[in-house]
Amino acid sequence: MKICTILKQVPDAEASIRTSGDRVDLSGVTFVMDGMDEYGVEEAIRLREGGAQVEIVALALGPKRFEDAIRTSLAIGADRAVHIETDETYDAISQARILAEAVKKEGAELVFVGGKEADWDSAALGPALAEVLGWPHVDWTTKLALSGAAVEATHDTDSGTETVKVALPAVITTQQGLNEPRYPTLPNIMKAKRKELRKAQPADYGAATALTRLTGEAIQVKTRLNKLFSGDAVESATALVNALRNEAKVL
């Protein structure tokens, strides 16, 4: 079975975000593989270690710098990678259309997508990709097991959690709790050098036209009151309740 894991490279969560004009300025920012995507790579490796015959293909759509994230995935254990390199910004829907073509060409039956992107805060790619492919998807997955030609997955819902059975092919979106991603090892980093990293272009997978465009980005930080009470527990608790009831007029 072929598994595609979709990768994205995003600013390190610790990096401070600046804007220049009405756009986010990412110059000088440290980029890392999206933490959400690491769960997908790890899960694919675990399926293999669990005895499944799988080939793991890392798939990424984005600028040249994404290479670093791709190499990380190869060092962790992906078998090979396809980098659809572009400086164009595609929205989640048009990304899904391009990536779906790539998934079809690879003949994958299982696709892992990070549950929520740490740059666009978007959870749309997984479901959109599944729809273009005509496959079911399971999002916010915290547990996964192969069961014949199907997977059993536990995932978060609005009211709690749910365990579902889905026939393959399917798209799984990953999140924390699914597994604990491993570190690559130095020997594997060196071995990854010899793994295939194929470059492609969006046009190789059909042209997709963006249906939305970015018009502005701004950092709006809500000013907080920062009123602190300290000292005696009873006194500070009383002061807090007073402030909440009489000043903020909440509770």
Partner: peptide, 16 residues
Amino acid sequence: RFTYLSRVTESSRTTA
């Protein structure tokens, strides 16, 4: 909408 871990407010428009 909020982006970059809710630190940025993004404006976007549909083209149609």
